[in-house]
Amino acid sequence: MFEHFAAGARTAVTAALDEARHRGDRRLGTEHLLLGVLHARELDPLGALGLDLPRARAALEALDVAALAAVGIDVRGVERAPVPLSGKRTPFTSAARTALRRAVGVTREQGGRRIKPAHLLLALLECPPPDPAAEVFRELGVDRSAVRAELRPKAA
């Protein structure tokens, strides 16, 4: 499947893998694909719509902090460090695989031949709740249709 990926989209998947492992996740999910895709410089203009890498990372962290608070754990002041990368395999979640397949479909619809970061992000925008990427978009308060409108020309 990855042979259809343009360089930027390959980089996004590699970055997603690092994001997942450094957080201590055992699987690569749609939330990691979202972080990975936001590494692409060509998507920097989305910052104006409230969508960029630091804010998406912070949103994921805020969701965790809130969920931990809900089970009575206060992580403020706790010393934490990024988890070291290991040689262990990090398989994709089924939602992440579905999103990658959808990116192929989005690319074809837009008349493209190679999957670019914009196609991947368009596919992630379609993830239905309670998908983790959908949760991040909700936490960020991102206007999905505005992001789509911004992405369409880049995806052509």
């Binding site: 201590g24 965790d64 969920a67 931990l68 754990i73 934490r80 460090a81 949760e135």
Partner: peptide, 24 residues
């Protein structure tokens, strides 16, 4: 949704606290 995310967050927290404590 909250309970399931809390379980994932606990796992991540354990990994991150381990990384910091081992380094120290």
């Amino acid at each position: 949704a909250v309970g399931l995310r809390a379980v994932g967050a606990l796992h991540r927290l354990a990994e991150q606290v381990e990384a910091a404590a081992v380094a120290r």
